[in-house]
Amino acid sequence: MADHAARMPRAAAPVIAAEGLDLVYRTADGPVHALRDVTLTVNRGEFVSFIGPSGCGKTTFLRCVAALETPTGGRLSVNGMSPDEARRARAYGYVFQAAGLYPWRTIEGNVRLPLEIMGYPRAEARERVARVLDLVELGGFARKYPWQLSGGMQQRASIARALAFDADILLMDEPFGALDEIVRDRLNEELLRLWDRTGKTTLFVTHSIPEAVYLSTRIVVMSPRPGRITDVIESPLPRERPLEIRESPDFLAVAHRVREGLRAGHGDL
């Protein structure tokens, strides 16, 4: 019980808290509002998807959380720290759309790279690499070079790389955007299992409605010019989600609402 009591307040504290976040780029054609007045809290263990047309600021928001961009206004905290402090504390793993594996390193070597940079001891690094490769079902491919793997397998390796150092936040920027539908379905299923097993707070950028609805506990719909949140949808779907759930009425209702949100965002133009 004491354990439970100790965990409760932690679980309640927001992992990511954005309040009135603004980001304006100064360009030759005048200022561009990449984000305007974005307010959002993400709690521990949530899976939040960001969906919207290109230019709606979904990637920019993720990059702000990762301290790869600096907001020009508003407040943003990650794990109770500023984003840059969180980055220094290695609070998150980031997965880009391109797997971005180094061609001169084996899959194992690629997954070990962040551990080398963070100074993990050799033995522990080896153990962690083996564990996360098993987690993404690439155990048998440790010694292969990236070009010997399919696109889907490369993306799984890049997810393993983001998981290797046990950051409790996973930031994913259209990780399956470049993959075909069949591979994407499988990876979605795997990602959901992975999230269930690791309990990592996940922020996931996508432009696919079924993907967003299938994966998320919450869906954030955004619209462009200026980039802003137009709707936040709590998913009524259970945690256990077989692929067939995508034909259930609940699923279709959420997908419908997301589509409505996207259309409304466009209507403003």
Binding site: R90, I117, M118
Partner: peptide, 27 residues
């Protein structure tokens, strides 16, 4: 930019970026 951003997410030092990313890519 993506390669360098990735290094930044791991809070890599300039020396680490140089030896682990710039040098091998320049071969």
């Amino acid at each position: 930019r993506e390669g360098l951003d990735l290094m930044r997410t791991w809070n890599a030092t300039r020396a680490q970026v140089f030896w682990r990313l710039r040098v091998p890519s320049s071969v």
